[in-house]
Design a protein around this nucleic acid. Sequence first.
DNA 1: TGCATTTACTATGCGCGCTTACTATCTCCC
DNA 2: GGGAGATAGTAAGCGCGCATAGTAAATGCA
Lengths: 173, 173
Amino acid sequence: MSARGAQGSDDAAAGEGRGPHGVRRLASGFAHAEESPGLLLWQVTNRWQAAQRAALKPYELTHVQFVLLASLSWLQAEGPVTQKRLADHASTDPMMTSQVLRTLESRGLVERMPHPHDGRARALAVTAEGRALADQAVAVVEACDAAFFAALGDGVGAFARAMRVLKGAAQGY
Amino acid sequence: MSARGAQGSDDAAAGEGRGPHGVRRLASGFAHAEESPGLLLWQVTNRWQAAQRAALKPYELTHVQFVLLASLSWLQAEGPVTQKRLADHASTDPMMTSQVLRTLESRGLVERMPHPHDGRARALAVTAEGRALADQAVAVVEACDAAFFAALGDGVGAFARAMRVLKGAAQGY
DNA sequence: TGCATTTACTATGCGCGCTTACTATCTCCC
DNA sequence: GGGAGATAGTAAGCGCGCATAGTAAATGCA
């Protein structure tokens, strides 16, 4: 990429070691947006999504489509799965879940049948084709994930733990 | 990658500490999507964005609009800022940067003048109103950020370090 | 039993994040 | 000087992520 050097110099000089937990400054006129944990989180996730997108491209699946397909494969062993249950498990928005599932249905990867006991709900099922695709995709996604987090080395365990803490803390929103 | 025996009967039990870097399994029939680092990263970021959205709502700013506005405030002390320079600094997509800046321009928060030395480029500037809004927003965003990462306690330093490692590693995409 | 509340799902709309394709300008190099 | 390639920016379009609002069916409670 282009001006890595120039940017790196002023960024690093200004942003480094300000305080124990990233105390940043709000000067009289402008903010030092810089590298807050949240900003880093956002930027890294964007990169991660780009990596996932690239890995899933051969299968014509988006990241969310893959997550829902794989989650459904996992869940459906325990009986009929509703859209809400799937959305809860995957932490996806119910509205988006509905929309993505209809896309997957139109591609013949899942089925959305009426629920046996609840007239409002749908009973979801992965088709044979969907299952086969998910099996392939899982492999490349896990390889992609491993490559992405390889830079952390042994630190990936601590990282995942921190993520679970944050996820749990943010639950109460 | 590593072929492993059948795993897991249930979510929580099965997902815990499998190996140094999250070796998960692809069983005969279904994937154990579970809690991979990447999935956690994605879910946590969605929560963080929701928190930011809520914090910025009173100012009628989205997260990206805020980032670009604040970044521009920070950058423009060093001379004329082009859209590309801003996009590089904020790690945002150039296309989206263009679009968001025009939104900010229509609200009178930034100006997009012709660049003095480059006929292709734009010289960006924050208006007085934009600067005032950014100053207010920075405060609430930082408070929001602090609250979000408070659950990590002292671990936030290690977390930010890990994020920088991942960001650097993902640079080579 | 009858009615209010809750719940599962869907329609619409906005903004992000990115892809592809295009114009206009700048820069390099002959 | 002049052409080739790189670079700054924009147009159109797709899918996620969510807010708002609405329908229909299930549940709770008198």
